[in-house]
Computed example of a mutant assay.
Amino acid sequence: MFRHLAVAVMALAAVTTATAAPASPAEATTRLVPAADREVAFTADGTTAYGTLHVPRHRAGQRLRAALLLPGSGPTDRDGNQPPASSPDTLAQLAGALDGEGIVTLRFDKYGTGRTGLGAYRDHPEELDYPAFLRQARAAYESLRDQPETDPHELLLVGHSEGAMTGLVLGGTVRPRPAGLALLQPQAIRLLDLVTLQLQAQVDEATRQGRFTPEQQHTIDAAIDAAVTSLREHRPVDTTDLPAAIAQLFEAFQGPNARFVESDDAVYPPDTAAALRPGTKVLLTCGTNDAQVPCATTNALTNALRHAHTGGPGRVTLPAVDHLMHDPDHPSTLAPSVLGALHRWARH
């Protein structure tokens, strides 16, 4: 009887062992990990910056394409907002769109926003210049590269407005080089040239509405041109002939923001395209309702990308889309044409 009992116990042990055996490598790779967000921290210039890493649903152990999301100008946080005045959630919505393409995203609070704050620049914010923001973005790229879910050979840069210019500059200098860039409504000419275009367009509209005479418009336009020349030549700006709001803007440009404005204006985006790796897949969007970055301002950059032998899809014109990538039927979400352009770029 004991012999039969021992055999039974051994058989039971064999069954128990079989059911408790670890999953095979093939079984492990088929296990799906649900989509999740987590807080990420990285350091640049002695300041800890904070961001959100979004990882789409994926197979356990899978390495995914990954995109660094770069915000536009001003105090724009990780979600693409400037609270309380503006909360379009531009970057958060881009992260959601790229989740659908199976792409990991990292978005972060740039200097002066969110959990990051001013950090090491707290007591001297006037020393913040454009290269400081570039160094912060480079540190974010390296943090994204080192995440366990990302494929370091399939890194991407996705920038909106000024963030697109930042992505363009980084694209030719970071290691490893990115596989692709999405330049969304990009700052594609020098900063002060873009400011001039924007201000003179506003003055033209005000003249059309009867708030200025044609003679006053001519005077104001000339004063704007002179103010830009003075800034670039490091001379005081004469604001005598400028409306109060425009005068205040130029006073800020030569005051606490002088260092940033000068260093940002020194970058001519088309010149940076030559450093991109040939074959880099580039999407450049412009919206026909974008008053801040009109499509015509992207002509030189589009040509430079072609001469740099970058890949497609290239420039995509988005009908009725504004600077925040909305259209009249989608005033608070990314327009379908934007999502379609991102999908085509991601497929490349």
Results as ranks from 00 to 15, higher is better:
residue 310 T to M: 06
residue 306 R to Q: 13
residue 282 V to G: 12
residue 307 H to Y: 06
residue 282 V to N: 08
residue 312 G to P: 14
residue 296 A to L: 12
residue 293 V to Q: 15
residue 305 L to R: 03
residue 307 H to T: 12
residue 303 N to W: 11
residue 301 L to G: 14
residue 291 A to V: 02
residue 290 D to E: 11
residue 272 T to Q: 12
residue 304 A to P: 09
residue 288 T to D: 13
residue 285 T to I: 09
residue 281 K to H: 15
residue 278 P to Q: 01
residue 278 P to T: 02
residue 288 T to R: 06
residue 303 N to L: 07
residue 283 L to W: 00
residue 306 R to S: 11
residue 313 P to S: 05
residue 296 A to I: 04
residue 305 L to D: 09
residue 283 L to Q: 06
residue 293 V to M: 11
residue 311 G to L: 03
residue 308 A to I: 10
residue 275 A to F: 02
residue 293 V to A: 15
residue 288 T to M: 09
residue 290 D to S: 11
residue 292 Q to Y: 10
residue 305 L to S: 08
residue 293 V to C: 13
residue 299 N to C: 00
residue 285 T to P: 11
residue 297 T to N: 12
residue 287 G to C: 07
residue 292 Q to G: 09
residue 309 H to K: 08
residue 293 V to K: 12
residue 272 T to K: 13
residue 296 A to F: 01
residue 275 A to Y: 03
residue 311 G to M: 11
residue 271 D to W: 01
residue 276 L to D: 07
residue 271 D to E: 14
residue 313 P to E: 08
residue 302 T to I: 00
residue 311 G to W: 01
residue 312 G to F: 00
residue 303 N to Q: 05
residue 302 T to C: 00
residue 275 A to H: 15
residue 286 C to K: 03
residue 281 K to D: 05
residue 313 P to F: 02
residue 302 T to Q: 05
residue 295 C to Y: 13
residue 298 T to L: 03
residue 294 P to Y: 10
residue 308 A to D: 04
residue 309 H to Y: 08
residue 313 P to N: 13
residue 312 G to A: 00
residue 289 N to G: 04
residue 302 T to R: 03
residue 299 N to M: 02
residue 280 T to Y: 04
residue 309 H to Q: 14
residue 294 P to N: 14
residue 289 N to E: 05
residue 309 H to T: 11
residue 281 K to G: 04
residue 279 G to L: 06
residue 305 L to V: 04
residue 271 D to I: 04
residue 309 H to W: 03
residue 311 G to A: 01
residue 278 P to R: 04
residue 299 N to H: 06
residue 284 L to P: 03
residue 274 A to D: 11
residue 280 T to V: 01
residue 270 P to Y: 01
residue 299 N to R: 12
residue 289 N to Y: 12
residue 274 A to E: 15
residue 310 T to N: 05
residue 296 A to V: 09
residue 302 T to V: 01
residue 271 D to H: 15
residue 284 L to I: 05
residue 286 C to R: 10
residue 291 A to H: 04
residue 313 P to D: 06
residue 283 L to C: 01
residue 298 T to K: 04
residue 297 T to V: 08
residue 308 A to Q: 08
